[in-house]
Amino acid sequence: MSDKIIQITEMNKWFGDFQVLKNINLEVEKNKKIVVCGPSGSGKSTLIRCINRLEEHQQGSIIVDGNELTEDTKDIEKIRAEVGMVFQQFNLFPHLSILDNCTLAPIWVKKMPKKEAEDLALQHLEKVQIADQANKYPGQLSGGQQQRCAIARALCMEPKIMLFDEPTSALDPEMIKEVLDAMVNLAKAGMTMIVVTHEMGFAKEVADEVIFMDEGMIVERAETKEFFANPKSDRTKLFLSQIL
């Protein structure tokens, strides 16, 4: 049991009358890289936002690192601090410099001394290769640089799990590669990752497993090679034929 870092059982979620997630069962083991794909509106983003409890689920249970996500807010902040998240729109804090973006949460949430937090931030910025931009503001950076900064910001909290919500969808093609490179390096370093993406190349390169979702359900879950070589469901075949 101990290596199951995320356990979702019988989870249902509605937005008003509309059921976005239907009967989701998902277990993720430690250090596994999982890619979630599927057509838009299929509930991929909502699923990983639920893992961070940015959205609340109405039925079923989500257990992250041994803690069940419930109404109790105190717990939620502790769990969120251990789950890093990267957004489609970067969501950097525009009023802070890149360095301050990275050190804000370690200093105020983890109570880390400022010096230590800055060293840590520079380390992570170095890893995503934007350490030289540390004193600029987000508005002065390109999209790709901003997204890499967002990755570094999440890493500064030293999370156990990283969630990526379509991290490359808002970027132009040339910048996608630099962000994907940063993610590949992260994967190779052994991070547990759940990535919602349409980049099948990335999936093939690093993912252990691929999940295909449609209309709020997990249609297919398979080892990466298996998934691309012989998908079982017709819906998956159709999707793959269109995207590849």
Partner: peptide
């Protein structure tokens, strides 16, 4: 809304989120 999401995802509670991220902007 992304600003709220980002602050929350970094483990900030209501007051930290508002004082550090939301209100300055």
């Amino acid at each position: 809304r992304g600003q709220y999401d980002a602050a929350k995802s970094l483990g900030m509670g209501y007051w930290k989120m508002h004082i550090l991220v939301i209100l300055p902007q």
